[in-house]
Simulated assay, not measured.
Amino acid sequence: MRVRYAVGAGALAIVVVVTGWARWGRPDGDPQHGLRAAQRATGPACRSLAGRWPGRLDGHGRERVGVTGAEAWGDGAVTARCGVTSPRLSPDPCMNVNGVDWLLEQARSRQAGKKILVSYGRSPAVEVTVSPGVRAVDTVLLGLSKAVAPIAQPFHCV
């Protein structure tokens, strides 16, 4: 009986170690949507944003992803992640949508093959990717601006 207990405990220890390494050894990411957690995704601003993400964007339903501070809509047609660094001054186009400034990062967008927009002047910032198949980027930004607006914005587009 004692031997069985020792073997059982040893097997349990191995399972715990392997499970722990599998969980802690991988980054907080979602390969299906190409998402990974932003550096400041666990901060209070991003945690409060979690309850404000819209249920639908441009007709696409929201999906739960296994990434802290991030969401996806329409099988990844639109993704958003909170906790990125706000962009610096840039020659890229910046637009205000319902009180939230969004910077279209043109070089990154060309490289990725989809639009990449980042909330400007907010800390932390929210990064949004929009696939080419999405009909109306402005509709997406309208839905997301309402959620992002409570994050303080000390700087604005010029």
Rank of each mutant, 00 (worst) to 15 (best):
V118K: 13
M95V: 14
Y120F: 13
R62V: 02
D101L: 04
V78L: 14
N96R: 02
H60V: 13
R88E: 05
G74V: 13
I116A: 08
G99N: 01
G76Q: 10
S90E: 09
C82E: 10
M95S: 12
R81I: 15
A77M: 00
A77I: 03
E105V: 10
W73A: 01
S86M: 12
N96F: 03
V65Q: 01
A107M: 10
G76N: 07
A72L: 11
K114E: 03
A72E: 12
T68G: 04
G61S: 04
R62S: 14
V78R: 04
W73I: 08
V100F: 09
K115M: 14
C82L: 14
C82Q: 06
G74Q: 00
R108F: 05
G99W: 03
S119N: 12
V100Y: 05
D92H: 05
T68V: 12
Q111V: 13
Q106W: 12
R81C: 11
N98G: 15
R108K: 15
G61K: 04
G99F: 10
R81S: 15
S90I: 01
T79Q: 09
G113S: 00
S109I: 07
G99I: 05
R64S: 15
S90Q: 06
L89S: 09
C82F: 06
R62K: 02
G61T: 09
S109N: 05
V97W: 12
D75C: 06
P91W: 09
E71W: 03
A77R: 06
N96W: 03
R64N: 14
R110H: 08
G113C: 05
G121C: 14
H60E: 09
T79P: 10
D101E: 10
P87D: 06
R62Y: 07
E63Q: 03
T68A: 10
V118M: 06
Y120A: 02
G61H: 13
G113D: 07
G69Y: 13
P93G: 06
E71A: 15
G66Q: 14
A80Q: 04
V84F: 11
E105S: 15
K114V: 11
S86F: 05
L103N: 07
G121D: 10
L104H: 13
C94W: 01
V78Y: 05
L117I: 09
W73C: 03
R64W: 00
V100P: 07
R64V: 13
R62L: 06
G69L: 15
E105R: 01
Q106T: 11
V118P: 12
E71Q: 15
V67L: 07
L104S: 12
D75I: 08
K115A: 15
D92L: 12
V65P: 14
G121H: 08
G83N: 09
I116C: 00
S109Y: 07
V67S: 13
I116K: 03
R110T: 15
Y120K: 12
A70K: 11
